[in-house]
Simulated assay, not measured.
Amino acid sequence: MSDALCIPPSRLRDHGRFAAAAARTRRRLPGGARPRSALHASRIGCQAIGLRIERLERAMCPRWHVDRTGIRLLCTWRGPGTEWLDDPRIDPRGLLGSAADAPATGQARPFDILLLKGSAWQGNAAGGAIHRSPQVAPGSDPRILVALDALWDD
């Protein structure tokens, strides 16, 4: 089983306008994000969910890496989506040498839900989803990224 899972949006029909999507999301956050976050937290057994919304004018993490987290949900609202490598021959512990120039095997589209297991996931210390931030083209609109992190008391 792969450490990365990409889920395309099943109910969104209009992917073209960030402003409309952001407005819908803002309206839903107070009443809608809490129940969804609670459901997400209960399904993976964590006490809380951390939420970040980033405005990125350049690649935040341009090199292949594995996060030191349990599991992270990413969704790009605008711009290019997160890229990942799904190649069992690549050792996540030696990414700078073995995969530095490797091409992505997958890339999320706007509004796709990407679930990434990190090295802190139970039994996954030597593994995790290998991924990177995509480049943002000069002069283009900034990339908008939403991240939900499972939080456990350790």
Rank of each mutant, 00 (worst) to 15 (best):
C46Y: 08
P138Q: 04
R132I: 03
R143W: 02
R132M: 01
L151Y: 10
Q122S: 13
C6N: 14
A100C: 09
A120T: 02
L96I: 11
A21E: 03
S140Q: 12
T25E: 03
A120P: 03
Q122G: 10
A21Q: 05
G16S: 10
C75F: 04
A150I: 12
C6Q: 12
V136A: 00
G81N: 02
A104I: 05
A126S: 13
R13N: 12
R26S: 13
S42F: 02
A102W: 07
F111M: 14
A100L: 07
L114T: 14
P142E: 02
L148K: 12
A23E: 15
R109S: 10
P88N: 00
L85F: 05
R58I: 07
L12R: 13
L5Q: 06
W121Q: 00
A21V: 06
P110Y: 00
G123M: 07
R17E: 14
D91L: 03
D67G: 05
I53H: 08
V136C: 02
G50T: 09
D3W: 07
C6T: 13
G50N: 12
G70K: 12
L12I: 14
D149I: 15
P62E: 15
R93F: 04
S140D: 12
D91N: 10
G32E: 11
F111W: 14
R68W: 09
I144W: 05
G31W: 04
R11M: 12
A59T: 10
C75P: 10
P138H: 04
D87Q: 11
G70T: 15
S37Y: 13
R43T: 02
